[in-house]
Design a binder for these strands. Structure first.
Lengths: 202, 202
DNA sequence: TCTTGATATGAACGGTCGTTCAGATAACAC
DNA sequence: GTGTTATCTGAACGACCGTTCATATCAAGA
């Protein structure tokens, strides 16, 4: 046998990427074989190479596309001026974006080590650029005196894994909605950067 | 050739575990071969099976030993009564313990998925027991009115990945000491659970 | 010194890996 | 209806996988 009926490049290509994303996220890059990906798509392993240079390129393209889409989506978000509102906009965005793409987040944070040095460098740079957005908000709030963030970079690197954590426990059919999660984490982050409270009057 | 001079079970066994821990943490369980572990120890692959039933058991024993040592160490810590102090004791402990054992933390949080279902169940249970310690502190503080933690479980699951994050960026020869990290994260966590500040007097 | 048990080698097992490629078939242009 | 091209198969490649085992050597006790 050879070509299958109804086969199309513009269908098979994305299906390969979706299958790879899902399998990589669930079992890890190293634990997933090209044959498993092919089976998920309903195709033989050799067919994958019509669409992907090799396994490493497949991983890189998935991660790179995610970082680009993340950054583009964030840039498209209207941003208020006040640092507190801006911070809440960031956390809301980050949570919503990743709760809709949990597999992308898993890849972005678990599979950096599976990239070749060059690919690693490229993805890490994009990740730093994204984290710098949060850091800039923290610095602005600190400069205006509405935040108390003596270590903006470290605080950003504390906030982000905290936000990411929600992907681990959130269930779309659970008790909480995405908006609930946004409110909960929004309050937590707000507390982290709020200036010391005024002492209670005696 | 056969037995090497100076070989001893009580030396080779731990060396295998140390090498496996280090390699698993760096490259991931699935990406590391028994031959790589053996090479790191300076031994042939077959010799590993004098000390380990199989690769899966090796991973499980590493994770299980870590969870036991973590729990035992926490139980040995003297705990103040006031929830705020108790919370700070927990975050200090968690940070110090894991900054000294970064590989253990990486395994505990990245390789759960590499465990067989039975092994996964055992490790996940121990992890929940540890996280319950933090949750109990939050609940106690909330009950006493010194914390504002309407969702203790979720807050605990927000705090822990945040604390874990420090393992990703901390460098022992860097600008900050472990104590500095403890102070920084201690303040962040304190802000997360602090009740709404008293409004400033007009 | 001789024996015995602990410790390691190194070759081998069947299986799976990522990847390539000649050949076969379906879809499409004319 | 015919020829062309895009798409996929199925077999094959060498390499490496986890694991086993007969064999060899070292360490220690008698």
């Amino acid at each position: 046998m050879a070509r299958k009926s109804g086969s199309h490049a513009e269908i098979t290509g994305p299906r390969i990427r979706r299958a790879a994303l899902s399998l990589f996220a669930r079992y890890g890059y190293a634990a997933v074989s090209m044959r498993q990906i092919a089976a998920e798509v309903g195709v033989q392993a050799g067919a994958l190479y019509l669409y992907v240079a090799d396994k490493q390129a497949l991983l890189f393209e998935l991660m790179d596309a995610h970082m680009d889409s993340l950054m583009a989506a964030w840039e498209a978000v209207p941003k208020p001026n006040a640092p507190a509102d801006r911070l809440r906009t960031f956390t809301d965005f980050h949570i919503a974006h990743h709760l809709e793409r949990p597999d992308d987040l898993l890849l972005a944070y678990w599979e950096l080590r599976s990239l070749t040095p060059d690919n690693h460098k490229a993805i890490a740079a994009k990740r730093r650029a994204y984290e710098a957005e949060l850091e800039a908000i923290l610095r602005a709030g600190h400069a205006e005196g509405v935040f108390r963030v003596p270590e903006a970079r470290i605080t950003a690197m504390a906030i982000i894994p905290m936000l990411n954590g929600c992907v681990g426990w959130y269930r779309s059919d659970g008790r909480l909605s995405v908006a609930d999660v946004q409110v909960l984490y929004g309050r937590l982050v707000h507390g982290m950067v709020a200036p010391d409270p005024v002492p209670a009057p005696v």
